[in-house]
Write a protein that binds this DNA or RNA. Structure first.
Length: 223
DNA sequence: CCCTGATTCGC
DNA sequence: GCGAATCAGG
């Protein structure tokens, strides 16, 4: 996995949006382990873990029995990575050679009507923790005088669950340096895939155009 | 069983 | 640094 600025930005964004690691992994076409591992390494704020807080009151001088819960897993699994390069030879040349998809550029649309069944869609909304749910950096702070109205929650759009496990290697990256809209154009792994690259909104990984479709108010969301 | 996130540890 | 394997709770 090549952790580019864009992928990391997306990881951070999705992570902060409260998506599950598996969901983030799906959107980035990586495994949840990779997501968790990277997030951990990045020092991203840990999310409510289903398992017990193992470093809660650790200080038992008495029970010094080293819990040998560690196995010795001989991780000599299938070296798929090596074979993968064979399966997916460099398509970069072809990618740069043709750039036809401009007209029918299909940005990830919230409602992929009939592209691929997306079983995870309904769960996204449900998995949005109400407390964590309102990172609304774009909106000015409202006074607490808005009680009855639930503040508009945002939903990360769930893009087609096309699970092509391609690497993003060779994908053109924005030429300009600094923040750039990391909205994916096209499908990862297919020729012509690239990121938007426009100047993102402050505090957001997407430009105004894509942020508008990336963040959908729940109440406006009709499936 | 499914899901979740956390941690370990070979690479 | 990376992430599969593994653990562990819901």
């Amino acid at each position: 996995m090549e952790w580019t600025d864009e992928t990391i930005a997306r990881l951070r964004d999705l992570w902060s949006q409260g998506l599950s690691t598996a969901e983030i992994g799906r959107q980035l076409s990586i495994t949840k382990n990779a997501v968790v591992g990277k997030a951990h390494r990045l020092g991203l704020p840990p999310r409510p873990s289903p398992i017990r807080n193992r470093k809660a009151g650790e200080g038992d001088a008495v029970t010094t029995d080293a819990p040998p819960r560690r196995k010795s897993p001989s991780r000599a699994k299938a070296p798929a990575a090596t074979a993968a390069s064979d399966l997916f030879p460099k398509k970069e040349e072809a990618a740069v050679a043709e750039t036809p998809v401009e007209e029918k550029v299909v940005a990830p649309v919230p409602k992929e009507t009939g592209v691929v069944p997306q079983p995870a869609v309904p769960r996204v909304a449900a998995s949005l923790p109400p407390k964590v749910a309102a990172p609304e950096p774009a909106l000015p702070r409202r006074e607490p005088v808005t009680p009855v109205k639930p503040e508009p929650r945002v939903l990360p759009i769930t893009r087609p669950a096309t699970p092509p496990r391609f690497s993003t290697a060779g994908i053109d990256r924005p030429t300009r340096r600094g923040p750039s809209c990391c909205w994916p154009i096209g499908d990862p792994g297919t020729p012509g895939f690239h990121f938007c690259g426009a100047t993102p909104l402050p505090g957001k990984p997407y430009c105004a155009e894509h942020a508008a479709i990336a963040y959908v108010k729940i109440r406006d969301r009709r499936d």
